[in-house]
Computed example of a mutant assay.
Amino acid sequence: MNNDPVLRLEGVTRRFGSGETALEILRGVDFCLRPGELVALVGPSGAGKSTLLHIAGLLEAPTSGKVLVDGKDCAGLGDAGRTRLRRDTIGFVYQFHHLLPEFSARENVMIPQMVAGLSRDEAGQRADQLLKMVGLERRSSHRPARLSGGEQQRVAIVRAIANVPQVLLADEPTGNLDPQTAAEVFGQLTRIVRATGLAALIATHNLDLAAAMDRTLELKDGVVLERRG
C-alpha cells in the first residue's frame, strides 16, 4: 500500500468577519492522513472541529493555507472540480445520519453511486455487498424510520464509502447513540477502514473511542497537536 498522505493541511487558518471583531477559529493547522489510518480529532465544544472537517472535505474554503488531496493542491479548483473531488475521493459521516426517509437502506446506498455514473444494477450489487459487510442484508428493504439508531448510522457509513473514497471524514458519528451501540458502530467503522485502506479522521468527544484509534489529534486554541498517552 502506498503510504504517501492522501490528505494534508498546511498552515490552514479560518477567520470569520474582519477587523477588531474578527473571530479566528483556526490559526495555522498542519496535519496529514495516510492510507489505512484511523485518527481521532478531539477538542472542547466550539474549538472548530466541524469547521476543520468542512475545510478538509472541501465544503468550506480556508482563509489561508493549503488543502492537498492525493498530493493535489485544491486551492485552484472551481466549484465543479471541488464537487467532483468530494464525490470521488472523500466520504462524509455526520452525527445525524441524514438518510433520505422516502428510500430504503439499499436505495440510500445506491443513490450516490448512480449520481457518480454507475448503472442501477451495478449500484444495487455494491449496495448489497456493503450492507452485508455491516450485517444489514436482511434490513436492506427497510426505510430509515424502521431502522434503529445504530442501524441508521451503519447505513450512513456504508453510503459514505459507496464510491470507494480515499478519505473518510466523520463528525461525531456515534454522538447520538447509547454507549453499547456506539461501540458496535465504531467497531464496524474500524473494520471497514482496515479492510479498505481508507484514511479516516473521526471527530469525537468520546475519549475511550479516541484511545482505540491509531493516534489522536487535539484541536485547541486554533491549532492541532498530536496527543500523547
Rank of each mutant, 00 (worst) to 15 (best):
D208N: 10
T21S: 14
D178K: 07
R8P: 07
I202V: 15
E151G: 07
G124E: 02
F96N: 11
V155N: 10
E218S: 13
Y94C: 04
N163Y: 03
G19C: 05
E226G: 04
M110L: 12
D73R: 12
G17S: 02
A162R: 03
D171R: 07
K72D: 13
L33Y: 10
P112W: 04
P165R: 12
I157R: 00
L100S: 13
Q95H: 06
R86E: 12
A47V: 11
G135K: 03
E20V: 12
I161A: 05
L100Y: 09
E20Q: 14
P35H: 06
E37A: 07
A182M: 05
V67K: 02
A156V: 09
R191T: 12
G36W: 11
P44I: 13
L26H: 02
L131S: 07
G117P: 13
L26G: 10
A145S: 15
L209A: 01
V167N: 03
A182G: 08
L26T: 10
E137L: 12
T181G: 04
K132G: 14
R86H: 08
L99T: 12
A183L: 12
E184H: 10
L7G: 07
N206F: 00
A170S: 09
G76P: 14
A116W: 05
V39W: 00
A210Q: 03
G91T: 13
G222E: 03
A210G: 03
G117T: 11
Y94N: 10
A47E: 09
V164P: 01
L99H: 11
R191Q: 14
A61K: 15
N206T: 02
I157K: 02
D4K: 13
E24W: 00
S45N: 13
V109F: 07
T190I: 00
L177V: 09
D214N: 12
A200Q: 05
N163A: 06
